[in-house]
Amino acid sequence: MLSSEEWGIVALSLKVGGVAVLATLPIAFALAWLLARKRFPGRMLLDGLVHLPLVVPPVVTGWLLLVAFGPFGPVGRWLESWFGVSLMFRWTGAALAAAIMALPLMVRAMRLSIEAIDRRLEGAARTLGASAWHSFWTISLPLALPGVLAALVLGFARSIGEFGATITFVSNIPGETRTLPLAIYSALQVPGGEAMVTRLALLSVALSLAALVASEWLVRRGHRGQDRHVL
């Protein structure tokens, strides 16, 4: 049904999306917690920065990444000299672009869920002998779990759909940065590529749907007896 080239594209997309979302998750959770719970100077600015990729044209995000992570960019030069690592034209760069684009969605989903936690439950846990950390791990985090799962799904779906920032930042290299959307775009440029476009497009839809169904199942399994939904 799928050629080995197409399987390769799917595998690469899953790798890029998976790494992007898993690596972003702790950062996104920390940001969501900060924005939901803490009052500090610059909070509005941080909120704006987190949401920027949602409103800025993706090509601009890609260009900013190029400037920052290029061989002469401030971050790129540092990564190169300290770790000998470059993200340019690599799948890791595609994962970074996907992560930046997914970040606002992930932060939003988790922030809503954190804001919905009854903070008095954390107080109750403290009076029962829980330290602030223990209360976080046993009360706050489990209660925020639907939001975390929603963030994983939305972030993953956004990541495997990422196009503009990726192609600008890491180009369109077969086997390295050519994820599903880039492959679809490339196939569209080639005469006679319609069959491949159809297959890859259907595959995109199937992947997104599977992610949604899987997360709904996870949430229901985790909270049997309670009425909860991801979206």
């Binding site: 009854d118 107080g123 109750a124 846990a125 403290r126 009076t127 002998g129 330290s131």
Partner: peptide, 16 residues
């Protein structure tokens, strides 16, 4: 609070 050894019964129960 965790070191005070006090049991607190809240108005609304506040079960987890």
């Amino acid at each position: 609070p965790e070191a005070r050894r006090i049991g607190y019964v809240f108005q609304d129960g506040r079960l987890f």
